[in-house]
């Protein structure tokens, strides 16, 4: 029953979603609204699982004085203090918003901005001419970059057109090809889960074997 019960729940959930989305009756009674609300409720209830996991792992780091345990103290204090502040002030509270706007957002933007350096190092590796494919990649990338940068059109007016053609035709065609395959793959995976053939989420190597 340990394996069967999740499969039955999955099948019922999947059928409810299909009926709610596709059929006139499901749409009329707003079936998906109920399932979405249930989904949100489960998600919120499970949030504490995440907080407990973090507290347990970092609490053990502090308790056993593992290397870098000071950072665990910072994390625990920041997480729980911010939580308490949110409960007291509400999410629109002055201090709560200040911390969000002046600390969190800046740290977030810093990590995002580091991407440009990683793009440079990844591009360096990708554009080293070692194979025929890498050469094609280098030429296409150089054309697109020259077409997008103001300098390119100064050198040759047609760089912009060449760049647009590469992005619009070969790039879009290959992306759509991958996307169609991915959608179909997702579709079939969903079907396998609904039919109980795919059981990887139930755990272990035996999960996917019927």
């Amino acid at each position: 029953m340990r394996k069967e019960l999740p499969l039955i729940i999955t099948l019922i959930g999947g059928l409810l979603a299909m009926v709610g989305k596709w059929t006139v009756w499901g749409d009329h009674i707003k079936l998906l609204t109920y399932t979405d609300q249930f989904d949100t409720l489960v998600g919120v209830m499970a949030m504490m699982v995440g907080a407990i996991n973090l507290t347990r792992i970092h609490g053990l780091n502090v308790q056993r004085r593992r290397s870098g345990y000071a950072f665990s103290i910072v994390l625990l204090v920041a997480m729980w203090a911010y939580f308490v502040l949110g409960v007291i002030e509400g999410y629109q509270g002055k201090n709560f918003r200040w911390i969000y706007n002046n600390l969190y957002r800046n740290m977030d933007a810093t990590m995002f901005s580091m991407l440009c350096f990683y793009i440079a190092s990844a591009a360096y590796r990708a554009f080293r001419i070692r194979t025929r494919e890498a050469t094609v990649l280098l030429i296409a990338a150089a054309l697109v970059m020259l077409g997008k940068a103001p300098l390119g059109e100064t050198i040759w007016a047609k760089f912009g057109d060449a760049s647009n053609w590469i992005m619009r035709i070969p790039n879009t065609a290959s992306m759509r090809g991958i996307a169609i395959g991915a959608y179909l793959g997702g579709f079939v995976t969903a079907l396998r889960i609904l039919l109980g053939i795919e059981r990887a989420h139930l755990g272990g190597m035996g999960g996917s074997v019927q």
Binding site: V42, A46, M47, V49, A51, H201, L202, G204
Partner: peptide, 13 residues
């Protein structure tokens, strides 16, 4: 956190 609980069970199993 929801995925974490499933991952834990999969790895444990």
């Amino acid at each position: 956190y929801l995925v974490m609980t499933v991952n834990t069970e999969i790895i444990k199993q």
